[in-house]
Design a protein around this nucleic acid. Structure first.
Length: 594
RNA sequence: GGACCCGUAGCCCAGUGGAUAAGGCGACGGCCUUCUAAGCCGUAGAUCGAGGGUUCGAAUCCCUCCGGGUCCGCCA
């Protein structure tokens, strides 16, 4: 319906004033709360060419609109150069009727775009932490949103399962593990392996300190530390395919995968395909070698291979070490090629922290300018900000990481504590646990997703994540509240499917809610365009807030007119399904009652 | 040395060239003889980091400066 308004305004400019307006200036915005009206048209851009005072022009256009489409425009008012247009109630009823039939199903034109989105990308030497949580949630929500607007989406994970850091935990387990296993100790596999990674670091520090006490300089102590040398030897053996090392590697990685699986399941994270660096780095190496043969890369005297990006305004980038082993960039080139061959996507989105902005600039440049790959242009780095603690950045080595499993469990307990404190317990034990999980995880997910992805965000463990105000539980609560209303309506056998008489009076609160519900589709579309789930989160808060106001002001079952009662129930129902759909995009479940 | 990102109330955060900068937390004051108070209403709190510029109009675009963060590893 706003399209028709714009078209009519355009006609007015063409026929009445003989000018061809710039489409960019022909936009409607929603009218601010302080003013009467539904949509606002700004006339300032036209006053110069038409040599009319803004209020005069706005008034003329308003009059024309009333004359041309009286069935649509009910009234208008002018404040300075702002033309505020109120639509006929008829239109809002019509929207309600339509939606009441189809629910909130999005009706986007089918889109043939194929998108591969990579997220999570863990290392197999330590458990997932808060940084991964943001990554996972952002990736999953973005994938859901893109899928909702009609794109074919493939979710993929890239596991960094090889390298010196993996060897370190392997070595530490071999030396200090006494053949213990996750089963024998009852420790979750990823945590079990992570503990040996920490153990390695501590033992290494001890070795270095010992040497330094004997007067060896720090630099030399590091160079000749037995643990380090052994881990390097182990990596070499791994690359040579040594059966024992490979067997150990497989065993320990499997422990980690079992652990990850549990974490992903609890977080609701899924993938269509998982890539392993151990499978892709060789392809990367091959591509680099071919690049050397083709003369687009060059080999230094020591045997290392480089890409020269000085013409592009960057520097020289290492692609293969002197000993022939691959680096991060090598592997990423291989993975990108493989991924392109697998899915032939129009876009390859990488959900990776903003500390890697430079890496992805380089990756894209090498793919397009050096290797002349058509997929180079499809690379898009969805770069997000760090999660910081009050004392600054999280650091694994200093033990200041917030563990993902611990955090989820704390959220569950916090939900339990909070629910019990409110004295809500008319559920059986299983249902209660399910509800606590829904609320706790919902609070965590919303907390992270509501902030603009590109911004750094603060997490303060001391003040646990809130359940009041702009939070997941607030929105879940709103949903539960509506469900309760609908149960009551069902009990009273009120028929919600019937159409409302379009002459029924429409109050401001009702009209306002319908208006917000109507925005849902464009919000999702915008979120897909900007790859920002935060837009959906903030919209849902606004919607819930508006509903609660309405709930307080307009008691449904006290309304004497049955038509008004049905009208309000229909609006409430639509509100609930919009919340459910929107929260679903964020990967957050909503309860029937809480 | 070079490059990128971010500065909005005590704290967190919205705002993608339009009206009097929107909310949340915290503070203070109201609202439960029941459609769920994890809610609603109200009060106090903002020279939108600073200065210039572009524009009818700038938190938003451009320039300079200040503050915070990140990257430019034969780590991933």
């Amino acid at each position: 319906m706003s399209k028709k308004l714009i078209d009519t305004i355009q006609q007015i400019f063409e026929e009445q004033y003989q000018i061809q307006p710039n489409p960019a200036d022909l936009t409607l915005q929603k009218t601010k709360k302080e003013f009467a009206g539904d949509y606002t048209f700004v006339v300032f851009p036209f006053v110069k060419t038409l040599r009319k005072a803004p209020p005069v022009l706005a008034d003329e256009i308003g009059k024309q609109l009333m004359e041309r489409i009286p069935e649509m425009v009910a009234e208008y008012n002018v404040v300075q150069g702002f033309l505020n247009i109120s639509l006929q109630n008829f239109y809002w009823f019509q929207f309600l009727e339509e939606k009441n039939k189809d629910g909130v199903s999005l009706s986007f034109p089918t889109d043939n775009e194929v998108v591969v989105i990579e997220y999570s990308s863990p290392n197999t030497n330590k458990p997932l932490h808060l940084g991964h949580v943001r990554n996972n949630l952002l990736g999953a929500a973005t994938a859901n949103i893109l899928s909702a607007v009609g794109k074919k989406v493939y979710r993929v994970n890239l596991v960094n399962d090889r390298g010196i850091h993996i060897c370190k935990s392997m070595l530490a387990w071999e030396k200090f593990g006494n053949n213990s296993t996750p089963e024998s100790t009852g420790i979750k596999g990823d945590h079990f392996v992570g503990d040996y990674y920490v153990e390695f670091d501590q033992q290494l520090k001890r070795e270095i300190a010992e040497q330094m006490q004997r007067g060896v300089t720090e630099e030399d102590a590091i160079k000749c530390a037995p643990l380090l040398i052994q881990s390097q030897k182990m990596l070499k053996k791994w690359e040579e395919g040594d059966p024992e090392v490979r067997a150990l590697w497989k065993k320990m990685n499997q422990w980690v995968y079992d652990g990850f699986e549990a974490t992903y399941a609890r977080m609701g994270i899924e993938f269509e395909k998982t890539y392993y660096e151990s499978d892709t780095y060789l392809l990367g190496k091959k591509m680099v070698e071919k690049g050397v043969a083709d003369g687009v890369f060059y080999r230094k005297e020591d045997g290392s291979v480089w890409a020269d990006l000085t013409e592009e305004g960057l520097d020289e980038k290492l692609l293969l070490r002197a000993d022939g082993t691959s680096v991060y960039m090598t592997q990423d080139l291989g993975t990108a090629q493989l991924r392109y061959d697998d899915f032939h996507p129009n876009r390859m989105i990488y959900v990776v922290g903003n500390e890697q902005n430079y890496h992805f600039d380089v990756l894209k440049l090498i793919a397009t300018n050096k290797l002349k790959q058509s997929w180079g242009e499809t690379i898009y780095h969805l770069s997000y900000g760090m999660v910081e603690l009050p004392e600054g950045k999280m650091k694994s080595r200093e033990g200041t990481v917030v563990d993902a499993d611990d955090l989820m469990e704390e959220m569950h307990q916090e939900a339990k504590r909070s629910t019990e404190e409110l004295g809500k317990n008319n559920l059986d034990e299983d249902q209660k646990e399910g509800l606590y999980e829904m609320i706790g995880i919902g609070a965590l997910k919303y907390f992270i997703l509501k902030v603009d992805p590109k911004k750094n965000m603060l997490f303060n463990p001391a003040e646990s994540i809130d359940f009041n105000g702009n939070t997941g539980p607030f929105i879940q609560y709103t949903h539960a509240r509506i469900k309760s209303l609908l149960r009551k309506a069902a009990q009273e056998e009120i028929d919600l499917s019937r159409d409302i008489d379009k002459n029924t009076p429409l109050e401001e609160a009702e009209r306002g809610l319908i208006k917000i519900i109507k925005e849902y589709e464009s919000v999702v579309q915008n979120a897909a365009h900007q790859l920002s789930p935060a837009l959906v989160a903030n919209y849902l808060f606004e919607l819930s807030k508006e509903f609660n106001r309405f709930y307080q002001e307009s008691p449904i079952f006290k309304a004497t007119d049955p038509a008004i009662r049905v009208l309000r129930l229909q609006i409430a129902k639509l509100c609930a399904s919009t919340i459910q759909a929107g929260m679903g995009l964020l990967g957050i479940q909503v309860p029937e009652q809480m």
